[in-house]
């Protein structure tokens, strides 16, 4: 070729680029995990203040509740419409609520809640901590002999770990209610049939597996928000970049971890 660039060169470049990006991402996850380890060690020596944890629980949980309500109401409604479309004239209608119940409790509730909270809370954590970093507020804490790990990181991660399962329970209940409304009003499933299906198909291990997932997702959201906030460099642009990275990385990690947890929970623990 005239330019001397062969398709092989381009492919090689692509592979190098992809492996470079993958390497960077893995290194980032490693550094974030190291940071969590440090935060845990520091907090074991002396626990973070309850007031700070409660504050973060409010910011992560209470302030996100409206968002979770809207998202899960429509998730349940869509699940009902889709399930009705696929099941009609194939299986009895009482299975409709069973399908909604199990898909919501096992998968949709925890994962959608985590993705939505990852976007909302992960971004705000990274932006707040990133701004604190570039305006030397984190250095000021260290200069006063106050551990930023204990004062900033630990309360956020702990609050996320506590609040994600709580929000997931809300999400599950509201999604099932959303499904109920659509099933009864639109698909004309009799209300007692829907409720009977819920009772028949409910399994404690489904609910538990969803909540276990939520605990892990909460730790990822807190970890990524804090890590990218603390890594922020270079003013407003850096804060913007950190915010994006926190959201993108937590969403990707949530989906990857969801697969791993599903395999572990349903093939090993609850098998």
């Amino acid at each position: 070729m005239a330019s001397g660039v062969t398709p092989d060169d381009i492919a090689l470049k692509g592979v190098r680029y992809a492996s470079g990006r993958l390497g960077d991402s893995l290194a980032g996850v490693g550094r974030a995990a190291t940071m969590m380890l440090e935060a845990t060690q520091v907090s074991l020596r002396r626990p973070p203040s309850v007031r700070l944890i409660a504050q973060q629980m409010g910011a992560i949980g209470v302030d996100s509740l409206w968002l979770v309500i809207v998202v899960s109401l429509f998730t349940g409604a869509v699940a009902a419409v889709q399930a009705a479309y696929q099941l009609t004239s194939v299986v009895p209608l009482k299975y409709l609520s069973g399908v909604i119940l199990r898909s919501v409790v096992i998968e949709l509730g925890p994962v959608l809640t985590a993705l939505v909270i990852g976007g909302r809370v992960g971004a705000s954590m990274a932006a707040e901590l990133g701004t604190m970093k570039v305006t030397e507020q984190i250095d000021a804490l260290r200069a006063m002999g106050i551990s930023p790990m204990r004062h900033l990181v630990a309360p956020r991660v702990l609050a996320a770990i506590i609040m994600l399962p709580v929000l997931t329970i809300y999400a599950d209940a509201i999604a099932i209610f959303g499904g109920y409304v659509v099933a009864v009003v639109v698909v004309n499933v009799p209300s007692p049939i829907y409720l009977q299906g819920l009772r028949e198909f409910f399994e404690m291990k489904d609910l538990l597996s969803g909540l276990v997932k939520a605990v892990f997702f909460g730790s990822i959201i807190g970890m990524m928000g804090c890590y990218h906030g603390f890594e922020t460099e270079g003013g407003a642009e850096g804060v913007g970049r950190a915010t994006t990275m926190a959201v993108v990385s937590s969403c990707v990690l949530i989906l990857i971890l969801d697969y791993i947890l599903a395999s572990v929970l349903f093939r090993i623990i609850f098998a």
């Binding site: 604190m132 030397e136 250095d139």
Partner: peptide
């Protein structure tokens, strides 16, 4: 320490 931008926790 007094920081350049004061670095008060906002």
């Amino acid at each position: 320490m007094l920081f350049q931008g004061a670095a008060l926790l906002d």
